[in-house]
């Protein structure tokens, strides 16, 4: 518990410094270099895909048995590409997952 509290607190301080970085250091004629800008723009897709792969395909370090998780996630990805909408993706993914669980998968 104490570890979690410390981790959240330190992560909070670091995150605040990140949030403040550009506002405090840039402005005027100083700008981010295109290379840094591009790397930062790739953080979100890379980090989120890493979390998705880890939580979807693995379970406690082992492969997750194929089932409702994979199928519902596939539907969610399809809806996300089709509708380009977070709300639709969440609703469709949750509905399919619930239906699959009810069906005993």
């Amino acid at each position: 518990m104490m570890t979690a509290f410390i981790v959240f607190t330190v992560a909070a301080a670091g995150t605040y410094l990140i949030r403040l970085s550009g506002i405090a250091l840039l402005g005027g004629d100083r700008e981010l270099s295109p290379r840094v800008r591009k790397a930062l723009s790739l953080v979100a897709p890379a980090a989120m895909a890493a979390i998705i792969a880890n939580s979807l395909f693995l379970d406690g370090g082992q492969w997750r048995a194929f089932g409702a998780w994979h199928l519902a996630a596939a539907v969610a990805v399809g809806v996300a590409l089709w509708k380009r909408s977070m709300g639709w993706t969440l609703s469709a993914g949750a509905a399919v997952f619930a239906a699959l669980l009810l069906a005993g998968l």
Partner: peptide, 20 residues
């Protein structure tokens, strides 16, 4: 755990630059 969180949040530096 902290390093993972800060890597994920590094994208906020981009927003911060845009907000400057």
């Amino acid at each position: 755990a902290i390093a993972t969180a800060l890597v994920i949040n590094a994208r906020l530096a981009l927003y911060s630059a845009a907000m400057a």
